[in-house]
Amino acid sequence: MPDENEFEGEYQGGTVKRFLYVNRRAPHGTIYPHETLEMVLIAAAFDQDVTVVFLDDGVYQIKKDQDTKGIGIKNFTPAFRALDDYDVEKLYVEKESLEARGLTAEDLLVPVEVVSTEELREIMAEQDVVLGG
């Protein structure tokens, strides 16, 4: 989770852009998913129109039952459940990526909309700022 001081000087410009966060990496192996989630929360604090998508290994980020005690790394993934509190409600998972990994929506720790590749293509095409990747 970001520090409180990250929210200082909240954006007053009134402009709302569509921010897309693309999660394509598995959690814990690298820090990218953790720090990308921090970017999501900040954009939400700026009252931007935030969409978060999970595809490829990114779907593993929201796998239920992650227990990082044994590897000594802080488990950031419960923070995905806080997205709703930040009014980040547009979470999409690509069906093809889930199926390729033997997962279903039941395996995920947050409510998401499972979409086809064609649907995801349309969602991802209509954005102003794309982060993650």
Binding site: E6, E8, G9, Y11, G13, F19, E38, I42, F46, V129
Partner: peptide, 12 residues
Amino acid sequence: SGLGQLIETGIE
């Protein structure tokens, strides 16, 4: 500075 500066850049 804060990560907010990145979001601000994205907006502006």
